[in-house]
Amino acid sequence: MTTEEVISKLGLNSLSKFEHREVVGVFVSDMLSDVMAGAKSGNLWVTVQTHKSIIPAANLVDVSAVIITGGKKVPQETIDLATQHDIAILVTELPTFELVGKLYALGVVTQ
């Protein structure tokens, strides 16, 4: 599955400019340290964090997209930094639990 398919199937909104890519599993965490330690290349990172520091962390471990849940407002500087690094910032009004359930139902599971 690709980021394009995930966006389309879950009705996510894209905030940054990026190239679509293959999605490999999901990583759920609101801590940068957790992501640096455990996320894998291609993972969708699901979080409520919106600070610009999520972008270097996402880039370091090469996630396929950052999905920000709960309708959180994302600062423009976070979006700009994401575009600069070709990182997908996707947002949804759904809470994390519901989004993760929908991802699981789509067959996007951590490998």
Binding site: R21, S41, V61, D62, H85, D86
Partner: peptide, 9 residues
């Protein structure tokens, strides 16, 4: 840990 065809660290 990353897809280095896209970018590197």
């Amino acid at each position: 840990r990353r897809d280095t065809s896209r970018s590197t660290v």
